[in-house]
Simulated scan of single mutants.
Amino acid sequence: MTPPRTRRVTTDRLTLQLTDLRDEGEAVVLVHGNVSSAAFWDTTLAALPERYRPLAVDLRGFGGSDPLPVDATRGLRDYADDLAALLTELGVERAHFVGWSMGGGVVMQYLRDRPAAVRSLTLVNPVSPYGFGGTHGVDGVLNAPDGAGSGGGTANPEFVRHLAENDRSGDSPLSPLSVLTSCYVRPPLRLAHEAAYVEAMLSTRTGDDHYPGDSVPSEAWPGIAPGTRGVLNCLAPTHFRLDDLHLVEPKAPVLWIRGEDDVIVSDASLFDLANLGAAGVVPGWDGTPAQPMVAQTRRVLDRYAAEGGKVREVAVPEAGHAVHLERPEEFHAALLEVLSA
């Protein structure tokens, strides 16, 4: 197998770090999730046949890419526009896009803004098209007008501290290693390249301009609302919302693949403050409903299919948030099917 190469590519927006294998073939853009990097695509890079040109990119503020500030008022468009600039620099006009978690939101935004440039779209445990936190119902109705319950203030400060201190131990349940083994994958699975994935998590830039971002007080429970800067605010439903995805033309085929035991993107997410409030973990819960993340994604993709798009949903049992690493054979089989279609 050709060993992967890592290089920095300068565009008219910023310099991004790229991991790839070859210069020929149908481009397959691999977009990682929050608190990670392109390193999480190592098995997929190795699995793609030579007819494809895999391009695993570090998003701004992650891995080896420039740590430019993130304007959260644009939703995920800073990231999507960065990808467009990268592909222009590489001379790629059309590509397949594969997005995991937050990266799923990035590639959905790319499809929304540039549908003619998308050959196919693969969503791997993607963030809801209505953002992360602060909504209820399959149509993503805001719990409060200011998006309370979402954004930079929802991150656990202890986890952020462990990230900033480059903690590689598993001594705390909120260290990156502990979060990887308890939340990214379904326990008791331990990944073969665990140390490399922890290093990828530690490459996350922290602060108000990066992860988790800023926040503002709110009169609505739980007392915090999204700010305008940083990663988690990009995902706030006041800034990121794709309920019109069914209107794009042309409609690329979509694969939605997810682990059934995902605790991050779920209808009962352990990262949604409303669920934690109902469980008594976050005090003062007033009955604010939780976000049905999977049901919201299904609603948007069902409308996409009703308007003529081809959508396939694959739910993988006994897999968590990183289904592409936990069940690589099933993941790669489904991915190759949509790529070849």
Rank of each mutant, 00 (worst) to 15 (best):
S65A: 08
A268L: 10
L123F: 04
S269M: 05
A192K: 14
A274S: 07
V28Y: 02
F132V: 10
T15I: 03
P173C: 03
L335P: 13
A117N: 12
G213C: 11
D272A: 08
H162L: 12
Y197P: 12
R60I: 00
G105D: 10
Y79R: 14
L45A: 14
A195K: 09
T11I: 10
D82E: 11
E337K: 13
N166V: 00
N166Q: 11
L235G: 12
Y184C: 10
L301R: 07
V316W: 04
D262W: 02
H239R: 15
G75A: 04
Q109T: 05
P187W: 00
R327E: 13
R205E: 11
W100F: 13
L83F: 09
G320T: 00
D23C: 04
L68Q: 06
S203L: 07
A236P: 15
Q109Y: 00
A72M: 13
S218T: 05
D139H: 05
G213P: 09
T204E: 06
L45W: 02
A56K: 03
G99C: 10
D66F: 00
R77I: 02
P217W: 01
P3D: 13
R186H: 08
A220R: 14
R112Y: 06
P222Q: 06
T238G: 11
D66E: 11
I257A: 05
A268Q: 13
L87M: 14
P292A: 01
E89K: 15
P187G: 00
S215L: 10
T228L: 15
L270G: 11
D272C: 11
H324K: 14
L14K: 03
L86W: 01
S37N: 07
A295Q: 15
N34D: 04
A144V: 03
G153T: 09
F331M: 12
G280A: 06
G104W: 02
T206K: 11
A341P: 03
T288P: 14
V185M: 12
V216L: 14
A192M: 13
A341V: 08
A268H: 13
E24A: 14
L142W: 04
A200R: 08
L86S: 07
P253G: 04
P283D: 11
D113P: 12
A164L: 07
R51L: 05
V263R: 15
V127D: 10
I257K: 09
P222V: 06
M102R: 08
A225S: 10
S203T: 09
G213Q: 09
F331A: 07
A47Q: 09
S150C: 10
T19K: 02
P173Y: 00
R298M: 06
